[in-house]
Amino acid sequence: MTSTERTTAHDYDRHPVREGFAAGTNFAAATLLLVVSILGVLQGISALANDEIFVAGIDYVYKFDLTTWGWIVLILGLVGPVIACGMYTGAVWARVGAVIIAAVSIIVNFLWLPYYPIWSLVLIALDAVIIWAVATWSRDRADGV
């Protein structure tokens, strides 16, 4: 068998289309994180500035002050763009930070379900896509190593 007939798993992973897709998912995850963070900042500011715009529907087990929630979302939203910028450069710390901040955001938005359920579900879905995209991207594959 010649060397051209041998195909290894490593060669399969280094396919140009797969490498481009992997790099694209990192860019998309960074962009999604940036957008979700900006939306979080705006949502946090609106919770801090005017608590009356948020209406709780049914009684919910997890109750907390809207001002506290506003500060949590605002802080997460301010950290997100820093991590997104690091992801654009492919930094490992940014990838780890993106997974952590997206996971925390999923938890926070789950707690936010009684106030705006559809909005919370949209943000939970976007955070799940961020985690998926970051977890599937490999810098070694994207660099062609």
Rank of each mutant, 00 (worst) to 15 (best):
E5K: 15
A29F: 14
V104D: 00
L34C: 09
W137I: 07
T25C: 10
T4W: 14
V96G: 08
R14C: 10
V36E: 06
D140C: 09
A125Y: 05
A103K: 05
I130C: 01
V129P: 09
A94I: 06
V108G: 06
L123D: 01
A98Y: 12
A98W: 12
R139Y: 10
F54Y: 15
I75N: 02
E52D: 12
H10W: 13
L113G: 01
W112R: 01
H10Q: 12
A128W: 11
M1P: 07
Y116V: 11
L48Q: 07
I100T: 03
A102C: 04
R139V: 09
L34V: 04
R14Y: 13
A98P: 05
H15F: 13
L48R: 03
D13C: 03
I124D: 01
A125G: 05
A98M: 13
V96R: 06
L126Y: 13
L74A: 03
T25P: 03
W71N: 02
P117W: 15
A23S: 08
L121Q: 10
T8D: 08
W119S: 11
A128N: 02
E19Q: 15
V145E: 05
V122G: 00
S120V: 07
G77H: 00
P81D: 05
F21T: 09
L113F: 15
G24Y: 13
W132H: 09
W69Q: 01
L42W: 06
V73E: 06
V61R: 06
V55F: 04
Y12H: 08
G77A: 08
A23F: 05
V79R: 07
C85N: 10
A125R: 03
Y60P: 11
P81K: 00
E52G: 01
A133R: 03
Y116W: 14
F27T: 10
I75Y: 06
T2N: 14
L78W: 09
T8N: 08
Q43M: 11
W93Q: 11
V129Y: 13
D143C: 03
T31Q: 04
I118L: 14
N50P: 01
G80R: 08
E19K: 06
D140A: 14
F110V: 00
N109E: 09
V73N: 10
P16V: 12
I75E: 01
P114L: 12
G80K: 12
S138L: 01
T4D: 13
M1E: 09
W112L: 07
A91K: 15
L111H: 05
D140Q: 14
G24D: 10
A30I: 03
I106S: 06
W137Q: 06
W137L: 01
A47I: 03
A94K: 06
G70C: 00
P16E: 11
I38C: 02
G44F: 12
D13A: 15
D127R: 12
I45F: 10
A98V: 08
Y12I: 14
G57N: 07
A133Q: 05
C85K: 07
T89W: 06
S120W: 08
S37W: 11
